[in-house]
Simulated assay, not measured.
Amino acid sequence: MMMRIAAGLLVHFFACVIYVVLNYYGVSLYKYMFGGLTSRGVSIGIAMYLIFYLFIVVNLIVALVTKISIKLIVLCFMMTAILIYLLPLYPVRAFAYSILTGGLTALAIFVSRKVDELILQRSGK
Protein backbone atom coordinates (compact mmCIF):
# COMPACT_ATOMS: atom_id res chain seq x y z
CA MET A 1 0.00 0.00 0.00
CA MET A 2 2.80 2.43 0.85
CA MET A 3 4.47 1.67 -2.47
CA ARG A 4 1.29 2.60 -4.35
CA ILE A 5 0.93 5.87 -2.42
CA ALA A 6 4.58 6.74 -3.02
CA ALA A 7 4.24 5.96 -6.73
CA GLY A 8 1.12 8.13 -6.97
CA LEU A 9 2.82 11.00 -5.20
CA LEU A 10 5.82 10.69 -7.51
CA VAL A 11 3.66 10.74 -10.64
CA HIS A 12 1.76 13.81 -9.44
CA PHE A 13 5.04 15.47 -8.43
CA PHE A 14 6.25 15.08 -12.01
CA ALA A 15 2.97 16.59 -13.23
CA CYS A 16 3.76 19.66 -11.10
CA VAL A 17 7.27 19.84 -12.56
CA ILE A 18 5.89 19.60 -16.09
CA TYR A 19 3.45 22.41 -15.22
CA VAL A 20 6.34 24.74 -14.39
CA VAL A 21 8.08 23.95 -17.68
CA LEU A 22 4.95 24.27 -19.82
CA ASN A 23 3.96 27.46 -18.00
CA TYR A 24 7.34 29.00 -18.81
CA TYR A 25 7.03 28.20 -22.51
CA GLY A 26 3.34 29.13 -22.54
CA VAL A 27 4.04 32.56 -21.08
CA SER A 28 6.78 33.07 -23.67
CA LEU A 29 4.33 32.15 -26.43
CA TYR A 30 1.68 34.44 -24.92
CA LYS A 31 4.15 37.34 -24.84
CA TYR A 32 5.06 36.67 -28.46
CA MET A 33 1.44 36.50 -29.64
CA PHE A 34 -0.27 39.16 -27.50
CA GLY A 35 2.55 41.39 -26.31
CA GLY A 36 3.75 41.66 -22.73
CA LEU A 37 1.77 40.19 -19.88
CA THR A 38 0.87 43.67 -18.69
CA SER A 39 0.21 45.12 -22.15
CA ARG A 40 -3.43 45.59 -21.16
CA GLY A 41 -2.48 47.67 -18.13
CA VAL A 42 -3.21 45.05 -15.49
CA SER A 43 -0.80 42.71 -13.76
CA ILE A 44 -2.22 39.48 -12.34
CA GLY A 45 1.02 37.84 -11.24
CA ILE A 46 -0.25 36.94 -7.77
CA ALA A 47 -3.26 35.19 -9.33
CA MET A 48 -0.94 32.89 -11.24
CA TYR A 49 0.74 31.90 -7.97
CA LEU A 50 -2.69 31.18 -6.51
CA ILE A 51 -3.52 28.93 -9.46
CA PHE A 52 -0.19 27.15 -9.10
CA TYR A 53 -0.75 26.55 -5.39
CA LEU A 54 -4.27 25.30 -6.09
CA PHE A 55 -2.80 22.94 -8.69
CA ILE A 56 -0.29 21.57 -6.18
CA VAL A 57 -2.92 21.07 -3.47
CA VAL A 58 -5.32 19.36 -5.88
CA ASN A 59 -2.58 17.03 -7.10
CA LEU A 60 -1.68 16.15 -3.52
CA ILE A 61 -5.32 15.38 -2.71
CA VAL A 62 -5.81 13.40 -5.91
CA ALA A 63 -2.63 11.41 -5.28
CA LEU A 64 -3.80 10.36 -1.82
CA VAL A 65 -7.44 9.55 -2.65
CA THR A 66 -8.18 6.07 -3.98
CA LYS A 67 -11.64 6.46 -5.54
CA ILE A 68 -11.57 7.62 -9.15
CA SER A 69 -14.92 9.40 -8.83
CA ILE A 70 -13.63 11.64 -6.05
CA LYS A 71 -10.48 12.34 -8.05
CA LEU A 72 -12.54 13.45 -11.03
CA ILE A 73 -14.83 15.60 -8.87
CA VAL A 74 -11.81 17.39 -7.37
CA LEU A 75 -10.35 17.80 -10.87
CA CYS A 76 -13.58 19.32 -12.20
CA PHE A 77 -13.77 21.63 -9.17
CA MET A 78 -10.26 22.90 -9.85
CA MET A 79 -10.93 23.55 -13.53
CA THR A 80 -14.23 25.28 -12.79
CA ALA A 81 -12.66 27.44 -10.08
CA ILE A 82 -9.92 28.56 -12.46
CA LEU A 83 -12.45 29.39 -15.16
CA ILE A 84 -14.65 31.35 -12.76
CA TYR A 85 -11.65 33.20 -11.34
CA LEU A 86 -10.07 34.24 -14.66
CA LEU A 87 -12.82 34.14 -17.28
CA PRO A 88 -14.43 37.56 -16.86
CA LEU A 89 -11.25 39.56 -17.47
CA TYR A 90 -8.73 37.11 -18.96
CA PRO A 91 -10.46 34.65 -21.30
CA VAL A 92 -7.29 33.44 -23.04
CA ARG A 93 -5.53 32.76 -19.75
CA ALA A 94 -8.67 31.19 -18.27
CA PHE A 95 -8.89 28.54 -20.96
CA ALA A 96 -5.13 28.05 -21.18
CA TYR A 97 -4.65 27.52 -17.44
CA SER A 98 -7.80 25.46 -17.09
CA ILE A 99 -6.68 23.12 -19.87
CA LEU A 100 -3.08 23.05 -18.64
CA THR A 101 -3.90 22.22 -15.02
CA GLY A 102 -6.80 19.93 -15.83
CA GLY A 103 -4.94 18.10 -18.57
CA LEU A 104 -1.83 17.51 -16.49
CA THR A 105 -3.85 16.32 -13.50
CA ALA A 106 -5.96 14.00 -15.69
CA LEU A 107 -2.78 12.64 -17.29
CA ALA A 108 -1.26 12.09 -13.84
CA ILE A 109 -4.42 10.25 -12.72
CA PHE A 110 -4.24 8.00 -15.79
CA VAL A 111 -0.51 7.31 -15.40
CA SER A 112 -0.78 6.66 -11.66
CA ARG A 113 -3.60 4.16 -12.28
CA LYS A 114 -1.39 2.33 -14.79
CA VAL A 115 1.50 2.36 -12.31
CA ASP A 116 -0.87 0.99 -9.64
CA GLU A 117 -1.81 -1.86 -11.97
CA LEU A 118 1.86 -2.62 -12.58
CA ILE A 119 2.59 -2.63 -8.85
CA LEU A 120 -0.37 -4.93 -8.18
CA GLN A 121 0.77 -7.31 -10.93
CA ARG A 122 4.32 -7.44 -9.62
CA SER A 123 3.22 -7.97 -6.03
CA GLY A 124 0.79 -10.70 -7.09
CA LYS A 125 3.51 -12.78 -8.78
Rank of each mutant, 00 (worst) to 15 (best):
M78A: 09
Y85R: 04
V17C: 02
T66P: 05
I99T: 14
T101L: 00
G45I: 13
I82S: 01
K31S: 04
F34I: 13
M33L: 12
G124S: 12
V74P: 01
M33W: 15
A15Q: 03
G26D: 10
V17M: 03
L72G: 07
L9S: 10
H12R: 08
A81N: 05
A94R: 01
Q121D: 06
S28G: 06
D116N: 11
L60C: 11
I5P: 13
F77W: 02
L104E: 03
R4Y: 08
T105E: 01
I51S: 06
I61M: 12
K114Q: 05
K67R: 15
L87E: 06
L104T: 04
Y30V: 03
P88I: 03
M3G: 13
M3D: 10
M2H: 12
K31L: 04
G36C: 01
M1E: 15
R93Y: 15
S98W: 02
L86Q: 01
Y25K: 04
L86H: 01
I82W: 00
K71Q: 06
K67G: 07
V65R: 08
Y53E: 11
A96S: 12
V57L: 13
L75R: 02
C16G: 14
F77M: 09
T66E: 04
I51T: 13
N23R: 10
C76W: 00
R40D: 02
L64P: 11
N59C: 04
